[in-house]
Design a protein around this nucleic acid. Structure first.
Lengths: 235, 235
DNA sequence: GAGTGGTCTAGACCACTCG
DNA sequence: GAGTGGTCTAGACCACTCG
């Protein structure tokens, strides 16, 4: 039997019981190692997992502290269409329809997200993706023209355009910021997703950075009835 | 400079460029170690992170394989009210209002989630939580009576009732399953969250397991305009 | 049986925090 | 300067996969 799960469980139980005060460090990795008679690396592994689960945070040189605030927070993962398909009885095939791919000018929201002047020429790609003949999500993507124009020469029906940017075009994405909201679907988007106007859907916004600058801004509308977000936690 | 980020980046670039075929293992940890002239533990750390980010999956005894399917998927974390407050200019105080706490009978949906007979007596707790005087989320929680009745004697205005179950009542939660959907708010819930009827909101459903059996079923309606879900990724 | 990932050890050096 | 977390090494033994 591995040793670190026991150490992790013991520390977690103490944290949940409030045995470590907020603002004060929990025992150091060396102390944990001697208490449980293991090497520091093994003690560290237990604390590693507590950190990843949000129970503690670490400060180099100072110690590890109970999080308190970030306690017990759910994490959701977006599932790919392929993964969703596996769950359905008839395992429908994913499809991608390219509705638009060309040059347009930045609206205020887009120029704001990309930090460029309004009305600058940009690359705009709109895709509808789904399973079988059911639409699941609508993507509207706005990209800085100079670095990404070559995208137009690639197959835009691939699952992830992000991978094309990184793999084929060789752009190294330094950071991705994304937020998740909900939205009442407006007429055009509702029609494409085959839902009544006003239906509630996920709205995900994503900005990809190339170096310090935004490179791409994408909005995704995702049908909520397709079990796109699921998570299971084993504490 | 640490060595593992370089190894990780190199492997990731190869994966994105398609240099490793799906269904075939990437080089073993020992091979990576000799290629980059590091110990196996350092090579392993690089692969660890690739696994956590979903680029590869491992099979003990067989090897590590490119994921393909699960590629590049976003993860969202629910933020606590405290964390949200830190972002706002006036740093409003979180509040919790207990709207109901008592015994009721299970509706079909609830008995289904808890795997009990319909109309069984259960514990029902409804809370409204928010920041300053703005409501942010509504919680409706249904619990198996025998194990959780002691909850009624505790302070129900704490941030996390889950922590009370685990910490004070000493119930060990073996698993948490949660799904995230969106919903158009119905009249009563809309009124409590101070939004027009039909407004789109998050609907999170969570089932907590005690051993193999469901112990608690909770539905959360969360206002979408409060930036509850955010994630930043540094690839 | 050879190779793989999973875990662990007992050390080491470093950057960092804190009084 | 003492203590902390961050990284790394060179080994070791194990459970597991696969031909």
């Amino acid at each position: 039997m591995p040793k670190y799960p026991h150490i992790k469980a013991t520390l977690k139980a103490r944290l949940l019981a409030g045995k470590y005060r907020e603002g004060e460090p929990i025992p150091s990795e060396s102390q944990v190692a001697s208490e449980f008679k293991v090497s520091r690396m093994t003690a560290r592994r237990a604390v590693d997992e507590l950190e990843r689960e949000g129970y503690v945070y670490r400060v180099q040189g100072a110690g590890s502290y109970p999080t308190g605030k970030r306690f017990r927070q759910g994490v959701f993962r977006i599932r790919s269409l392929e993964e969703l398909a596996l769950e359905l009885p008839d395992q429908p095939l994913p499809f991608t329809k390219v509705l638009k791919a060309g040059i347009s000018t930045a609206t205020p929201k887009v120029s704001d997200a990309l930090r460029i002047a309004p009305n600058t020429a940009i690359l705009e790609i709109i895709r509808l993706r789904g399973l079988g003949d059911l639409p699941v999500l609508l993507e509207k993507r706005f990209l800085k023209l100079e670095q990404t124009e070559a995208l137009l020469k690639t197959d835009l029906r691939v699952e992830s355009l992000h991978d094309t940017l990184v793999g084929t075009l060789g752009l190294s994405i330094s950071r991705v910021e994304q937020t998740l909201e909900t939205a009442n679907l407006e007429h055009e988007n509702a029609k494409l997703l085959e839902l009544p106007i006003g239906t509630s859907a996920f709205l995900m916004k994503r900005i990809s950075f190339f170096g310090d600058l935004p490179l791409a801004y994408t909005r995704y509308w995702v049908r909520s009835d397709r079990r796109a977000f699921v998570s299971v936690f084993e504490p």
